[in-house]
Amino acid sequence: MARVKDPRDITLHDLITSWYGPPVRAAIPLPDTCDWLPAPLKHWHTLASRWDARLTRMTSMVPPEKIQVADDGKAVFMVDATGDWRWSFDPADPGTVHDAELYEPWQRNPEPFTQFLIHTATRELVHSVPHRLWTSAAPDAAVAEILSPLEEIGFGAWQWPTPGHRIFTGDDTLVQVVAADGGWQVEVAAREPTALTRLESIATITWHRPTR
């Protein structure tokens, strides 16, 4: 049976520190006008203020003082990089996240707010750290080799950006996989470049290095 890591065992502080190093400053408190926001979201913003590192690339957090409740009763707090996908909460049920593609009806996200933010932070790391690899057509046997020493994080299923993505973790790497035409799309993030050596030696994969 595959090993699965409970996301409740992960804290945002420990996750960010393990990849970006210790905080560089004290937290910047949010203004009183943000008191109505859900506690996990306030925690995200105050925690993120302690680092200079850019913690999101594929998504963007709405500045907390600019979050507003729309006519549909939802308050958008995050959007994807293209603005085509949105995430919101209902002030009457602040522990629940809703998401939807632009102009589509809201759907309840399967993860509670705190876990959702940890999922977000983990997925963003795959696209943000300096040492990364990706491939769009890894064969089954190669993916099994990549994942063999890793542990899956038991996140809930998201519809964005592609349904079915899964995230695995090891001592020095994060790996995201999703089924694609002709194989598997695999994205790898590593704390140090040497952690990528094992993967680059897999002969059946042509790896690419992101340009940013």
Rank of each mutant, 00 (worst) to 15 (best):
M1S: 09
A2L: 14
A2F: 14
R3F: 14
V4F: 11
V4A: 13
V4M: 13
V4W: 08
D6Q: 10
I10C: 02
L12K: 06
H13K: 12
D14N: 10
D14A: 12
D14M: 11
D14G: 11
T17I: 13
T17D: 01
S18K: 13
G21V: 03
G21C: 14
P22H: 09
P23K: 00
R25G: 00
A26R: 11
A27W: 11
A27M: 10
P29E: 03
T33V: 09
P38N: 05
A39C: 07
P40I: 07
P40V: 10
P40R: 05
L41C: 09
L41W: 06
K42Q: 10
K42I: 15
W44Q: 13
T46P: 13
T46S: 13
S49Y: 05
R50S: 12
R50E: 06
W51N: 03
W51P: 12
R54W: 05
T56L: 00
S60P: 05
M61N: 05
M61R: 07
P63A: 07
E65S: 09
V69N: 05
A75D: 04
A75P: 03
D80V: 02
D80L: 01
A81R: 06
A81W: 06
G83N: 09
D84R: 03
D84P: 02
W85S: 03
W85N: 04
R86C: 14
S88P: 14
S88R: 06
S88F: 04
A92L: 08
A92G: 14
P94E: 02
G95Y: 08
T96L: 03
V97Y: 01
A100R: 00
E101N: 15
P105M: 12
P105C: 10
P105L: 09
W106D: 03
Q107E: 13
R108W: 08
E111G: 01
T114P: 08
T114R: 11
L117Q: 04
I118G: 02
T120Y: 04
A121L: 15
E124N: 13
L125Q: 03
V129S: 07
P130Y: 02
H131I: 01
H131S: 09
H131G: 01
W134D: 13
A137E: 10
A141E: 13
V143I: 01
V143R: 00
E145P: 10
L147A: 09
G154K: 13
F155V: 11
G156V: 07
W158L: 02
T162H: 12
T162K: 14
T162G: 08
G164R: 00
H165P: 02
R166L: 13
I167A: 00
T169C: 14
G170R: 04
G170A: 08
L174D: 00
Q176G: 11
Q176H: 09
V177P: 01
V178A: 03
A179P: 04
D181Y: 15
D181E: 13
G182V: 07
W184A: 02
E187A: 14
R191I: 04
R191C: 08
A195P: 03
A195V: 00
R198H: 06
E200A: 11
S201D: 10
I202F: 13
A203W: 05
T204M: 11
T204R: 05
W207L: 01
H208M: 14
R209Q: 07
P210D: 07
T211V: 15
R212S: 10
R212D: 12
